[in-house]
Design a binder for these strands. Structure first.
Lengths: 361, 361
DNA sequence: GGGAGTTTAGCAACGCTGTTGCGTTATACG
DNA sequence: CGTATAACGCAACAGCGTTGCTAAACTCCC
């Protein structure tokens, strides 16, 4: 099947996802509000809400008296009705996060991983972590350093891990955990978390991550963007200085080598300016209007990076870019991985392209 | 209405668009082929085809005897059933292209524009060009240098044109021509043309344009990508040399100034290497797997640019990038603008996100 | 206190979508 | 000429959102 045709059930799923997304973004809501926000008739919304209540995703939580007339029923999401597990696989640790349907982090644990751990060792740690969570999640998401193939679920060559060449991790984990599994680059999972937190206004954004390497997670047109080989966002290896020092990637004058050299020399201002130049290059290329700064190495000196970046971005009456710090802390990757699972099951992006149904080309 | 709900008619439109897209990519097709490609039942395909035949978009063109059994009806697109007009607004000329439903360029004309032409003068030229075309097109597309706002249809500050600040060109043209009008950056229109020509395999690509400025049109995830302010693809103004010469954009060491300086010095090899480095940077950021080289200044020395670019791109067993020359010639922008109009009316992207109905996140 | 007015909810019928069942049609083959 | 085969297409169907209308619940006001 090349391009899938649409059936009635997809229409239903789409509208249900729409309402779940709305429920997630509002503490409480009523039938009329959903009808107005979606363009569906109140009666159609009743049917959708009826199905969601039946499945336990949504519940009635009261009535609203707004003066004259019959009071409207008020609904709200039931966050505890569904759970998802998110993993952040780092070089020496496995971070496991359990989130509810709203994307709230319920528990967060860190398990040490053996040096140069094997796929088998990782899977054991994951199984144990899921067991400890004590609930039956709808799926598990894995955020990991690349390169990897998101669509195929294969880890290509995890940076600085010897046993990880062309490992079909998604399939292995799916079997081991008996759950649907999503595999993605850490930065992409991270930007997903940020996008969830910000809501629909966050249509085009980049999460800049400085933490043993420099990369970006891209959220373009309202969805995670990974590129043809799940390799988008490798802007740490873009050249900023044609005759610069040799980088590990083989080229010269990459952002990463320039930045790290400056940091090693104690010139934090220079490092921040280099990164800021790279970010402006990224903006010139992708024209995102949200930049989120993240990563342990960056957040350690967040103020310098934030102000330097802000100052470097050109502005005009029609160009506005927000620069903020990621505020989900160390959980951001794992939490984002869990949200990707929820998106796949209950999110709009999974059911229908994010450039949505009626957007003009 | 925040996020639109889905109704039955959208489902119908989506499936019809799907079949039209299929018809465009195959010279001839039958019911069974469409059913297999879309996952719809043959009976459903019959209904869709019946509607398309009724509207004249598709016709029966014979039968296929494949041995025993009743022969299958063979269908084909009726290219002449719909037309679209595409404009390429350059600094001194207006190029007008008339295409049919298949995207084939039927006529192409060039009208001189007065120096420093005004919006009124451009509109007059457009109206005259549409009149000469002699058909009733479904709409008109305009490809123009930025910056501009695609969504609002406003030209922000057309580069080197004095009378073009915050001009609501789409609205003006819509009134003047009595047609639906699309306004877009020239490079984005160009990459649309290339994507149409290549078909669905062209999911992630960039059209690199060197012609009085250096820019890229981006096609990401199967759709044109413009960014938050229709400003994506300005990679001519990304920094490649931190301490390089001052560029018109205010920064130092931009790709464009480095490239143009090398060209002015007669060092074409250096210029090509600079551009190639910029392209590799773009690949690191966006991970597209198709690079299309275009623009008068580039195509004049296409071989140097093409081989230099190919050599600069790193490869591995899982990374493959095609580098080709745009072969639509000078019509590429205007033709792409026309195709955007057709996409809006009969294309899948307009009806449903391109990351289609069932793609996983 | 009770009727009028207002707002929300929801049943029932409807139109339209793709689907299913099955008879019809057109061909090849023996 | 009868049979098997393959595609077609009418008719009935299930499921979607919509429409029409009635019921319910509340406030307001006489």
């Amino acid at each position: 099947m090349d391009t899938p045709g649409a059936h009635l059930e997809h229409l239903r799923d789409y509208n249900e996802s729409l309402v779940v997304a709305l429920a997630r973004s509002r503490a409480e809501f009523d039938r009329a509000g959903v009808a107005e926000a979606t363009g569906l008739t109140p009666q159609a919304v009743s049917k959708v809400l009826g199905r969601l209540v039946e499945h336990g995703l949504v519940e009635v939580c009261g009535v609203r008296r707004q003066g004259v007339g019959k009071p409207a029923s008020i609904y709200r999401l039931v966050p505890g009705s569904r759970h998802a597990v998110g993993f952040h696989v780092a070089r020496r640790t496995l971070r496991t996060v359990l989130t509810d349907l709203a994307g709230t982090v319920l528990t967060s644990t860190v398990t040490p991983l053996p040096p140069d751990f094997t796929p088998g060792q990782l899977l054991d740690a994951m199984r144990e972590a899921v067991r400890k969570a004590g609930v039956n999640p709808v799926g598990a998401g894995i955020g990991m350093v690349g390169p990897l193939d998101h669509a195929a679920g294969i880890v290509r060559d995890a940076h600085r891990l010897r046993h990880w060449h062309d490992v079909p991790l998604r399939e292995l984990a799916q079997e081991c955990l008996a759950l649907p599994v999503h595999l993605d680059k850490d930065v992409t999972a991270g930007v997903t978390a940020e996008a969830w937190r910000r809501g629909p206004a966050f249509r085009d954004g980049a999460l800049i991550m400085v933490e043993s390497g420099i990369g970006a997670g891209l959220w373009l047109g309202g969805a995670a963007y990974r590129g043809a080989h799940t390799n988008a966002g490798e802007f740490g290896h873009t050249v900023l200085q044609l005759d610069g020092p040799r980088c590990v990637c083989g080229r010269s004058g990459c952002l990463e080598i320039l930045h790290d050299t400056a940091v090693a020399d104690g010139q934090l201002g220079t490092a921040a300016r280099v990164l800021a130049t790279g970010i402006v290059n990224l903006l010139q290329t992708t024209d995102v209007n949200h930049v989120v700064l993240a990563g342990a190495d960056l957040l350690r000196s967040s103020e310098v990076y934030e102000t330097t970046t802000r100052d470097a971005i050109p502005r005009s009456h029609w160009l506005d870019v927000s620069v903020t710090l990621a505020d989900l802390g160390a959980d951001v990757i794992a939490a984002g991985a869990a949200m990707q699972v929820l998106d796949a099951a209950y999110g709009i992006p999974s059911k229908m392209g994010v450039r949505s149904l009626f957007s003009t080309v």
